[in-house]
């Protein structure tokens, strides 16, 4: 890690240059006005200094035209700043559909990172250069923040919900990772390193620890253990082809909405099924809030993502497409899965 003194951070992501240009624009405008005002004041203070104690200067009440000019011009300039800044921000908050996905769990005071292929790491994040990476993050305790200054990105990481952050690393190297939301005693030590490697090195690193089970495999086990297939695909909407599609749902008040089935939707539906119910299906799914940890949720979600059909991303109607989510034959079905008595007849 390069610890030499620097004037400016490195530009190591697709966004960094855009942010820096935006900053330069604001810097230019600010410097212009600051120098203009300071020079004017300095000039006035010297040129109009009191030369004799009794002098009485002319009184000038104001000038309406001037007021209008110096209201309109700053307003116009700030609106330019707003629009430019909004564009950069929206781009920063909108990950591309083909971004590589990595899960992050923050907790006092460390980062646990889970690659979908199975490799896990603590306080470091390996990523390949040149590929879009999307982080799906949650916290196990208080609010943290996953900040990579050289990429110009950060996002608060909250308990109880997912937040996302994405970037395309553009330079091989090592970069600082900081927790950027005060989270208690060792907040200043919740730091790490982002290691950007070229694709070959990344692949080698991924393969480096063969004993790690990919989350989707663990997820499939959970899927069986908790009997999800008992309903999904028969009485309940099939999960095949669900991830990434738009879904017609009813919320708690009975209002009709369309939502995208992303990680946050999947997590919410497992924990709070009553929040968004697929249109046309009764309200029967039990909640698994007390049974699953955040890590297990991530694994389940990874598994559900593998059930997606690669093709069209049209609207999803939860159609009963038959037993699309049957487990592989090698695993025995668990009889009487837990919580099955939740659905007794009333």
């Amino acid at each position: 890690m390069d610890t030499s003194f620097r004037l400016f951070p490195k530009e190591a992501s697709q966004l960094a240059a855009r942010v820096d240009h935006l900053v330069l624009f604001l810097l230019g405008v600010s410097a212009f006005f600051a120098i203009l005002i300071f020079a004017t004041i300095l000039f006035f203070v010297v040129y109009y200094r009191r030369r004799n104690p009794g002098e009485r200067p002319p009184q000038i009440a104001g000038n309406t035209l001037l007021e209008i000019v110096w209201t309109v011009i700053p307003t116009g300039l700030t609106m330019v700043m707003f629009v430019w800044g909004a564009k950069v921000f929206v781009a920063a908050q909108t990950p591309p559909a083909d971004a590589m996905e990595i899960f992050v769990i923050g907790k006092q005071w460390m980062w646990e990172i889970q690659h979908p292929e199975g490799r896990r790491e603590i306080d470091t994040l390996h990523v390949p250069v040149g590929r879009a990476v999307k982080l799906t993050m949650t916290s196990l305790d208080v609010i943290h923040d996953f900040s990579i200054p050289d990429f110009r990105v950060k996002q608060d990481v909250r308990p109880g919900s997912y937040s996302t952050e994405w970037f395309v690393p553009t330079q091989v190297g090592q970069y600082r990772l900081f927790c950027d939301q005060y989270c208690g005693a060792k907040h200043a030590e919740m730091i790490g390193t982002v290691i950007v490697c070229d694709p070959a090195q990344y692949a080698a690193w991924l393969a480096g620890a063969p004993s790690d089970v990919p989350p989707r495999v663990a997820g499939e086990k959970l899927f069986l253990q908790y009997g999800c297939a008992t309903c999904h695909g028969q009485y309940a909407p099939t999960l095949a082809g669900l991830y990434g599609r738009s879904v017609d749902v009813l919320d708690e008040h009975g209002n009709h909405r369309q939502v995208i089935a992303d990680e946050a939707y999947l997590r919410e539906s497992i924990l709070y099924p009553e929040a968004k119910m697929v249109v046309g299906y009764p309200n029967r799914m039990p909640s698994f809030k007390s049974s699953l940890s955040e890590e297990q949720l991530m694994q389940l979600i990874e598994y559900i993502k593998t059930l997606s059909a690669a093709a069209d991303l049209g609207s999803y109607h939860g159609a009963n497409l038959g037993p699309a989510t049957q487990p592989s034959e090698a695993q025995p079905r668990i009889e009487n899965p837990p919580f099955s008595d939740f659905r007794t007849n009333r």
Binding site: R18, V19, L22, V23, L26, S30, T78, M81, F82, W84, G85, A86, K87, V88, F89, A92, D145, S147, P149, R152, V153, K154, D180, Q181
Partner: peptide, 13 residues
Amino acid sequence: FLATLGIDMHVHD
């Protein structure tokens, strides 16, 4: 600078 969304996301906190 802080009101500018694209800058705040870098310098926040």
